[in-house]
C-alpha cells in the first residue's frame, strides 16, 4: 500500500537505500501489462509467437517495466512526488515463473529544485532486467 504521506525533500538522506520490492513474473502480469499499455505485439501474449522469435516464453514489454519502475519508486516516495524523468536501460528479459527484485538508492539531491535522483535495478534469475534512474521533485 502506498503511504498517503509523501516524503519531504528534507527527509531524504544522501545515499538512502530504498526497501527492496520483489515482483513475481507471471503470464497474467505480462499479458495484462501488455494489454493495459495497449501493446498487442504477439511476443507479449502468444506463447507460440514468442517461441518463433527464439524466446522460451512470452516476455514482458517495456511499458510494463516502466510501470513497475514507477510503482517501486513511488511506493517509497509517496503519492505527491512529481516524476520529472524515468530513464531505463533494458537487460535480461522477464519470463513467467521468474521473480524480479527491485533495489535502489538515492544518488543525487538538488536542493534548489527539491529534486531527488534514485538509481535502481530490477534483477531476475538471469541478471538485471532493468537498470535506470528516476528523478522526482518532492514537496
Amino acid at each position: 500500500m502506498t503511504s498517503k504521506n509523501t516524503k519531504r525533500f528534507e527527509d531524504v538522506r544522501p545515499g538512502e537505500v530504498l526497501p527492496e520490492l520483489a515482483v513475481p513474473i507471471t503470464v497474467g502480469l505480462i499479458t495484462g501489462g501488455a494489454i493495459a499499455t495497449r501493446d498487442y505485439f504477439p511476443g507479449h501474449h502468444d506463447l507460440e509467437a514468442a517461441r518463433a522469435l527464439g524466446s522460451p516464453h512470452i516476455f514482458m514489454n517495456i511499458l510494463t517495466t516502466n510501470g513497475l519502475v514507477q510503482r517501486y519508486v513511488e511506493s517509497w516516495a509517496g503519492p505527491l512526488a512529481t516524476f520529472t524523468s524515468l530513464k531505463i536501460k533494458l537487460g535480461a528479459p522477464n519470463y513467467p515463473g521468474d521473480c524480479m527484485t527491485f533495489s535502489g538508492s538515492v544518488t543525487r539531491q538538488d536542493a534548489d529544485t527539491r529534486t531527488v535522483e534514485v538509481t535502481l535495478s530490477g534483477k531476475n534469475s538471469m541478471g538485471n532486467h532493468v537498470t535506470g534512474t528516476v528523478a522526482l521533485v518532492l514537496p
Binding site: 500500500m1 502506498t2 498517503k4 495484462g32 493495459a36 510494463t64 510501470g67 510503482r71 503519492p79 505527491l80
Partner: peptide, 23 residues
C-alpha cells in the same frame, strides 16, 4: 486498469476525492 495490473496504489490516479485535495 493500468494501476490495477501494475500494482500502483497511489490514490492521486484513482480517487477523485483524494486528488481534489492535492495541489
Amino acid at each position: 486498469q493500468w494501476c490495477e495490473i501494475m500494482g500502483v496504489e497511489n490514490p492521486l490516479y484513482t480517487d477523485p476525492a483524494f486528488a481534489l485535495g492535492t495541489p
